[in-house]
């Protein structure tokens, strides 16, 4: 088995597979502890472990196969990731129609703008080995931001439907009636990113910087590069949250400017 893996990928994977098994065993042991405390996450833990391992291994295999291909392949991979991110984020929007489209546009705007900016300043190159890993981090962060903004927006409108309808009843435009909910959704989705920036290096050393140091990069260079990535992640998150909230705003009202409680998952008081 070890020999076959070595032949296929140019590196012996036996060791890392054993380590992955060890990490999984630790998770299963923790799951056992949870079970003793009547917290039943057995099925979800096993499914998540298997799913996570298979997905990341598959991505690794795909990357290994296409690592030396051109820029176009990298863009296609990032596009596929953006579609997957939009599909996941749109699950947080309850019954809001067109949520996938909204999340796709938001994630694409946030991550696309940011990756283009990184390319413009030379922080990422067109090489697939840089573009895909860094791009995927930005897309993943944009996805989380879209999820948080969408969920917060929907929940805030549902919780404050009386205020929203009071504003409509006084002749306010729908955009004005939910302006506070848009602000709240965007800010809420940015809090984790702001905290991450503030605590960079003090509370945590991010995985990318750690990986670069392990690979022999100068720690100062690795640290500054990590800052660039974190700043770009913040920018991507902010653009994504803003676009998601502003687009979702248009989807919770009818053409006659009535709040659709069904779309925000609320009921009449």
């Amino acid at each position: 088995m070890g020999n076959e893996l070595t032949l296929a990928f140019g590196e012996d994977l036996t060791g890392v597979l054993v380590q992955a098994g060890g990490a999984a065993v630790l998770c299963l042991a923790v799951m056992g502890l949870c079970r003793r405390a009547a917290v039943h996450v057995e099925r979800e833990t096993v499914v998540s472990l298997l799913r996570g391992f298979l997905q990341i291994a598959l991505v690794g295999i795909v990357l290994a196969l296409v690592l030396h291909r051109g820029f176009g392949v990298g863009v296609l991979i990032l596009l596929a990731m953006t579609i997957a991110a939009a599909a996941i984020a749109s699950r947080r929007t309850g019954g809001i129609p067109g949520a996938f489209r909204v999340c796709f546009l938001a994630v694409a705007a946030g991550s696309g703008t940011t990756i283009a900016a990184m390319a413009a300043i030379g922080a990422v190159t067109a090489e697939l080995a840089t573009l895909v890993p860094v791009g995927s981090m930005v897309i993943a962060s944009a996805m989380t931001s879209a999820s948080q903004a969408a969920e917060r927006f929907r929940a805030e409108v549902a919780a404050r439907k009386g205020l929203v309808e009071a504003a409509l009843a006084l002749g306010a435009a729908p955009a004005k009636a939910v302006a506070a909910q848009v602000r709240s959704a965007v800010y809420a989705s940015l809090i984790p990113r702001l905290d991450a920036l503030k605590s960079l290096g003090i509370v945590w050393v991010p995985g990318m910087m750690a990986g670069m140091i392990v690979s022999g990069a100068n720690p100062v260079f690795a640290g500054i590069y990590q800052f660039i990535v974190m700043a770009m992640i913040y920018a991507a998150s902010a653009i994504t949250a803003l676009v998601a909230a502003l687009l979702l705003r248009t989807r919770i009202f009818t053409p006659a400017e009535q709040l659709s409680l069904q779309r925000v998952g609320a009921t009449r008081e």
């Binding site: 009386g162 205020l163 309808e165 009071a166 409509l168 009843a169 006084l170 002749g171 306010a172 435009a173 006659a256 400017e257 009535q258 008081e269």
Partner: peptide, 16 residues
């Protein structure tokens, strides 16, 4: 709709 709601004003049960 905005003109209509201005002309037909409503005071709600819960004032909000």
């Amino acid at each position: 709709p905005r003109e209509l709601r201005r002309r037909v004003g409503m005071v709600m049960q819960a004032p909000h």
